[in-house]
């Protein structure tokens, strides 16, 4: 099977003034196209660091990251931006919606950045908001929406440009367990129906059960990679 992401001996060290903080220490891993992967591990183990590297938001200190067989270190700024816009979709723990824009404006933004045809973009953004159950709240500002609703807007924004890889970092972290389950349900449904590669960071082992595979980090090292036999595409947990 084709690896969509591969880490080759990747290290990431943060510079905090004089001090060097190692966040990842020589990681090797491959993620297969269409997989649903959960990254788990204690706080500070390097999960977000790994996500940021996959999402081309940051570059490794050492080692090589291949995304669809391209070395991301060799891509130009504008190519990286295109990659972030078209191939990758982010959902963040803190929703990261733009506060001065309505739900609809937030969702359509990635399409505007990619210069997608206006009529198509509007249709698509509307459809995505309907899909996450917010068809009636399109013109609400983020401040007028609940946490769960905001996270649904951010899921709609993530899927609007039809990315191949979805990166979800603690997306239920700020939500109560019922809303969290709802959000996971939406994510799962999109995975099942649209066949995306999903990589999800979570603390919560219950949520990790939604995933197909799990990668466990400790102090910047991968200590375990496991398969969840019960999870298969087309079968809800």
């Amino acid at each position: 099977m084709e690896a969509i992401i591969s880490f080759k001996d990747v290290s990431k060290t943060y510079q905090m003034g004089e001090v060097e903080v190692p966040a990842l220490r020589g990681i090797n891993v491959e993620i297969i196209k269409g997989d649903f992967v959960a990254i788990i591990g204690a706080s500070g183990s390097g999960k977000s660091t790994m996500m940021n590297l996959i999402g081309c938001l940051d570059i490794p200190t050492k080692g090589k990251i291949l995304l669809k067989s391209q070395d991301i270190a060799k891509l130009s700024e504008s190519n990286l931006a295109t990659l972030r816009g078209k191939t990758i979709g982010f959902v963040f723990q803190q929703y990261n919606l733009i506060q001065t824009m309505t739900a609809f404006e937030n969702v359509i933004l990635p399409l505007e950045l990619q210069e997608v045809n206006d009529i198509f973009a509007k249709e698509r953004a509307k459809k995505m908001l309907e899909l996450v159950g917010l068809g009636d709240k399109m013109n609400y500002l983020p401040t007028q929406l609940s946490g769960g609703q905001q996270q649904r807007v951010s899921i709609a924004r993530c899927f609007v440009a039809n990315p191949e890889i979805i990166l979800a970092d603690e997306i239920t972290g700020a939500l109560d367990s019922v809303t969290g389950k709802e959000i996971m349900g939406i994510l799962k449904k999109l995975w099942v129906e649209e066949g995306k590669t999903i990589i999800m960071v979570t603390h919560d082992l219950n949520l990790a059960k939604y995933a197909h595979r799990s990668i466990e980090l400790k102090d910047g090292n991968i200590i375990r990679v496991g398969n969840n036999k019960k999870i298969r595409r087309g079968v809800a947990a």
Partner: peptide, 16 residues
């Protein structure tokens, strides 16, 4: 700054 970060994460180029 945060908004710039968000926009870059969803595909904004420096030029934009």
């Amino acid at each position: 700054t945060k908004q710039i970060g968000i926009m870059k994460a969803i595909g904004a180029r420096n030029k934009d």
